[in-house]
Design a protein around this nucleic acid. Structure first.
Lengths: 200, 200
DNA sequence: TAAATTATACCGACCGGTCGGTATGTTATG
DNA sequence: CATAACATACCGACCGGTCGGTATAATTTA
């Protein structure tokens, strides 16, 4: 098996185990077993448990919202962009729920480890500036006024992160999909008025 | 020192250490040291590490939003209730930031431990039904229409949980307080229109 | 082109520190 | 003086990381 194949196999296994057991309760042996390798093999590809988890953040980033990042949004309406984002998040919840639990685990480790935190900050800065650009464009086009694009980006991001809560606890009346879509509609409606205002 | 005093001392110490190191990396010895007791004393008051953490959830619940839960909101406007909630959350961020990091740790453990999850679910159900009642009352008063109180409650709760993100990562342009207040304003403005609609 | 050399991928027994928990005290309290 | 409150010494399962080794592939050499 090729080197990259093996590494990916291990990363996939690590994602699965880390998400279920958390960082500290995850044994390198478990990851090795799940990947179909020995512990020696895992340490051949990754220098330490920490290194392996660190690599998982890259893996997470490329898996989470590929459509959202790849699309060229310059000539698509803000509303459609946001609705597509919501649907990508909802689809992730349906098919890759582990992504949200992984996000939780990344948060937990970010709170303890500076390197992990800095890496993750970079990830969120990218997400936020992407959203901010989209809002800025829409504002420049004269479609929406009096909104602070940075704050709007935060509002969207944290709303989508609400799905983390769903991943852990569920809701007796709503599905995560309903939540995501309705909250996004709520945001969209709010944007059409003068809701999130400039703060200077 | 009285029994309850000692227990509280230990709980306080445990909160501090768990929040910084996470559940697994927290040693019972560290908690004992921080509380000014020996490990034997800790095990005299709590039967296990798990039991101690479990008790911490009660402690967290009583510390988090006492004003919000205690006030009698029956004759206060929805807008004021929400603004006061936002200000209580903001004040927590300023003075008791650890509460949000504790919430994160509770989430992480809820994902692995059924008992912790069930306990925490109860906590959130209480919070949600409290919010839902407030919304329902406002709707019955004819002030706001076409909103699903359950969904509105979720939107408010998850927005406030966005502060967890702030507790870990910060934001280069906004403070958590700005975030909380502006997002709550945003929600309030949205409620005045027909934004979160009934879904049936 | 076959043999020798070297590199890569992988294995798994083992070591050593860590830490939840316990057993057995000692001291305070009422 | 009995019991609660706390301290101290210790146990042993657990697990990240190490390391000597093997098997196979890639490269060099003669």
């Amino acid at each position: 098996m090729s080197k990259e194949n093996s590494k990916n196999q291990i990363l996939k296994a690590a994602m699965k185990i880390f998400v279920v057991n958390g960082y500290s309760n995850t044994k390198m042996d478990d990851i090795a077993d799940e990947a179909g390798f020995s512990k020696g093999a895992v340490y051949h590809h990754f220098s330490s448990k920490h290194d392996l988890f660190f690599s998982l953040i890259d893996y997470w980033e490329t898996s989470f919202l590929p459509k959202f990042y790849s699309n060229d949004y310059s000539n698509v309406s803000l509303v459609n962009v946001l609705k597509e984002l919501a649907s990508e998040v909802a689809s992730n919840f349906k098919n890759k729920k582990y992504l949200f639990l992984a996000e939780l685990e990344i948060w937990a480790l970010s709170n303890r480890d500076v390197k992990v935190r800095e890496r993750t900050k970079k990830l969120y800065n990218k997400m936020l500036s992407h959203l901010e650009n989209i809002f800025s464009n829409a504002i420049n086009d004269g479609e929406y006024k009096n909104i602070d694009p940075g704050m709007a980006a935060m509002a969207v991001m944290t709303s989508m992160q609400g799905v983390i809560w769903f991943s852990i606890f569920d809701h007796k009346n709503f599905t995560a999909e309903q939540y995501v879509n309705e909250v996004m509609n709520f945001i969209i409606n709010g944007l059409k008025k003068t809701s999130i205002e400039m703060t200077n």
